[in-house]
Design a protein around this nucleic acid. Structure first.
Lengths: 217, 217, 217, 217
DNA sequence: AATGAATGAGGTTTCATTCAT
DNA sequence: CATGAATGAAACCTCATTCAT
């Protein structure tokens, strides 16, 4: 049985293991949210131990989501900090690599959004909001270095609208991928989530930047 | 005690009463999803009766959401069928009246999106998708009569992207309205959900229609 | 009026159909007591109709059991009324043919015994007791014509003890026939229900009649 | 609130408390089988806890019955192991004290017999059968020390037949004691269950032992 | 700190019974 | 009379959460 880990980094390690376990279970069976018992089992600890690291199951899921989001922002900010000028396709690549193609990202984002009415502690929710806001402002500001935006706020808004599209479109057309049994209708409308996402984001940024974007492959 | 209702319209009535009860309870206490027992009680029927009308609680919630969506589409299609030409502000009004200002709409939409991984029966999910697809195509096609869109598909896509923005933005900035305790951050970013929504949709449509829209609020 | 008679026998017919349905379903699946819905369905009537013929499900089961018991007593009394002298083997034959080999008899008897604490209406229970008592006394009295018993009461008691053995032994060793998975133990103890029953009844009657009975199987 | 009990004996204690609660409720109101919620309440535990100890309500009832049976066998085996020779009256005393006069014994035995078709898990049923078989063989063997029986098997059979009589007679004449409203009939037939039981067992043992038993007080 | 038995809320299911049509 | 939708009690089951050890 796992024994006390005194140090802060040990605690951090355990925390990450729990998040890993949750995400891994989710990927294994995307149809259902893993139970606390399952997460604990997968992480090799007892059920009660989970509550030494998270106030509630929803807090845990929110933390897992935060980690996903963080990875995206880290990549975005890192790339934005480079000298080399970014273009829209760079943005799309980041989006694909860290959001659209991370199988658990959007389901988890969707679930967490629906959970804000339930077990998320107020402080966790606020911490999340605060955190996202900070990242958004940092990344939004950096965006001005690469794109002809009037001010930092425009960058922030563009990012927010982009994320809203990413999330909203997925909830509309992407969430039933695993059980997609009515190909007739949806495939008429939209070839698939990624293509539609590309087109929608392209249109959004085109409008925001007041210029035609190359039509991409 | 409610007693047998033989006719189809009586059944329909009972169904609506259950949805009414669910939505009403939700509005009373937006913090939590009402239990089946509460919904049954509010509708004046026995708990078991709920399961004569819906396969699961999630199916009921999905049906409630469908009704919300339906109301919007009905209004949109009705208005689109009129001779009088629509402009963007008409669209915004419809959006506000049937979506953004219907207090339970977006929370329910968000919840339902997160629930697709749980108790929704496959048939209910498919019926919902099918239904939405039909409405989208009808409404999207009619849109061409009022706006300079290349084809019906463009109308459908514009509607989908609009809805994605409506939903995604709400999940980003609007969902914590009732517990909004961090005014500092979010109000810096965004005055409020409705204003940001207006701006975002305006930009989206502007891009899609290739023309400047009047800047009015 | 001619109607009442026709109605009465129609009613009787329907009653028998319901009992037939119940017993037939029981035989089909001896693991479970058929539900009222199943009985009704099998008999081709609606659920509610069952309650026009029986006050409760338990009354129905009791009636089905009564019919089984009646068949035995009818045969016993009929045979006892014949001139031809009976011996113990005749009794055993009757027992086998009308009780031990009627697949639903003993399960039903056992169930009904356990149900007397539940849904059986008082009047149905009393009617059953009364009926059994009458049959017992008749049959017990006739027994004296064939066996050297001191009085009619002895005949009644012999019958009761015989039935107690039939029922009690079945509950001890016979009821798990379908799921008999521990052959080691029980087959050591008792070859099978019928053999043990034969031996036990033989001993009982031997004692009651104060004479050795031929040892035949 | 009752809290975790780690040790095996604590678990055993909790198990016994649940059985106590069930039997006690049964005695309080012999007309109905207590619900799981009632049993849990009486035992001071939560409903869900019952299912940590028993797979189903029927398993619980079977366990309660097993305990009754066990008490009888323990007394019988203990007495049989003593040097002092037993006679039939000793057997009757044991029977009376541990079976016929334990108010819940026979109703429970009857109920459990009727329940084997329902919620009893196969393993519980087999465990019960196995257990009974072991006790029977032990006690049956010991019986030879006190009574002139040809072999151990005879002892086992005598016990089984005795128990069959005890149970069967009770189901015939004893089960309606609490609601005994037809004194006319049954009292004519049988003064009461205990007397008839005494007479019937006496006859059975007399036959088995090939000797007249004293006519008892 | 870690554990996991116990909790209790509540969703799901079955089913005997009732009653308006 | 017959019907079957509705009822309500209760079993069954899962699961997040707590707390004594």
């Amino acid at each position: 049985m796992a024994r006390p880990l005194a140090t802060a980094e040990a605690r951090e390690l355990r925390t990450q293991q729990l998040l890993d376990a949750a995400v891994s279970l989710w990927k294994q069976n995307p149809e259902r949210v893993p139970s606390v018992a399952e997460v604990a089992g997968k992480a090799g600890v007892a059920k009660g131990t989970v509550y030494l690291y998270f106030k509630s199951k929803e807090d845990l899921l929110l933390a897992a989501h935060t980690r996903h989001v963080q990875a995206f922002f880290t990549a975005l900010i890192e790339r934005s900090s480079q000298r080399k000028r970014m273009n829209f396709d760079d943005i799309m690549h980041l989006t694909r690599d860290h959001i659209a193609s991370v199988s658990a990202f959007l389901p988890l984002a969707t679930l967490v959004a629906g959970l804000r009415h339930k077990g998320v502690t107020q402080e966790a929710a606020e911490a999340f909001d605060q955190h996202i806001a900070e990242q958004l402002m940092t990344a939004g500001g950096l965006l001005c270095r690469h794109f002809p935006l009037p001010d930092a706020t425009s960058g922030v808004r563009l990012l927010m609208r982009s994320y809203a599209l990413i999330l909203g479109l997925w909830q509309l057309v992407g969430s039933d991928q695993p059980i997609c049994t009515n190909p007739g209708v949806s495939s008429l409308l939209l070839p698939d989530y990624l293509s539609e996402l590309d087109a929608a984001l392209r249109a959004l940024w085109q409008g925001a930047l007041n210029k035609k974007l190359p039509q991409h492959a």
